Amino acid sequence: MSAPPSPPMSVLFDLWLVNRLLSDALDGVLSEASGLTGEEFGFYSLLRRFGPVPAGQITRWTAMRPTTVSTWVRRLQQRGHAEQRPHPADGRSRLIALTAAGEQAHAAAAETFVAATRALSAALGPEEQRQRVSLQRLDAALREVGGLDPRPYGLAEQHGSTDNQLTYPGRPLDRGEEETVRAYIDFIRSRARQEAPR
């Protein structure tokens, strides 16, 4: 007997669940290897890739409250991992940047992070890019609703129809199974070409 259908949940609840899974996964692998939490690694990544940047821009990208950004910056400064510099175009503003020690700490954690993401990439398989583009659309909608700036990077949208793409909800195929499926697809296509009217 099948289980009764569960009540529908909102997309925000979906995101909350994913966020919990993500936080647990990142904290587990990063804190052991580098001493950084997943949240800290994300903050370091933002500064390393897009800094030096004003604190206000961090707020507009991440939706962190200004007081939260200030707390993060103080924490990194106490570690010797961040510094504030004068803004060349705005004398009232300061730019936040990672120091050389901060970049080294991030680089050490990044090795562990990249290794951890390989398992997720393998589980997503060929769906990874499409899933990331979907997340980008969701990110853009949340930013529009929240009145935030666009994210500081983007992925190319996939063009063309995906109606002819197959999805498979089961476990990922191993290499041998995938080769068998591809061979069968080639066989089906060759038969279709042979049977096509000339």
Rank of each mutant, 00 (worst) to 15 (best):
Q78G: 08
F41G: 06
M9G: 10
R175K: 04
V69W: 01
A110G: 00
A110L: 10
Y44S: 00
E32L: 14
L135A: 10
L36G: 02
Y168Q: 08
R193A: 15
A122C: 06
H159Y: 02
G147R: 08
P88C: 14
L26P: 04
E144S: 11
P86Y: 07
L166Q: 13
T59H: 04
L76C: 06
R20H: 11
A110T: 05
V53Q: 06
R49D: 15
N19G: 11
A196K: 14
I188V: 14
L36I: 10
T112F: 01
E39L: 03
R132C: 03
S2V: 06
H87K: 02
V133I: 13
V73Q: 05
A119E: 15
S45Y: 11
R20W: 05
R75V: 03
D186F: 02
A63K: 05
A192W: 04
R151N: 03
I185N: 00
A97V: 13
T162S: 13
L12D: 08
S121W: 10
Q165S: 08
E39C: 04
A109W: 01
L95A: 08
T68C: 03
I188P: 00
L124A: 13
A156D: 15
Y44R: 01
D174F: 00
R137T: 12
S121Q: 12
G35E: 11
L120E: 11
R137F: 06
M64K: 08
S134K: 05
F113R: 07
F187C: 00
A109L: 04
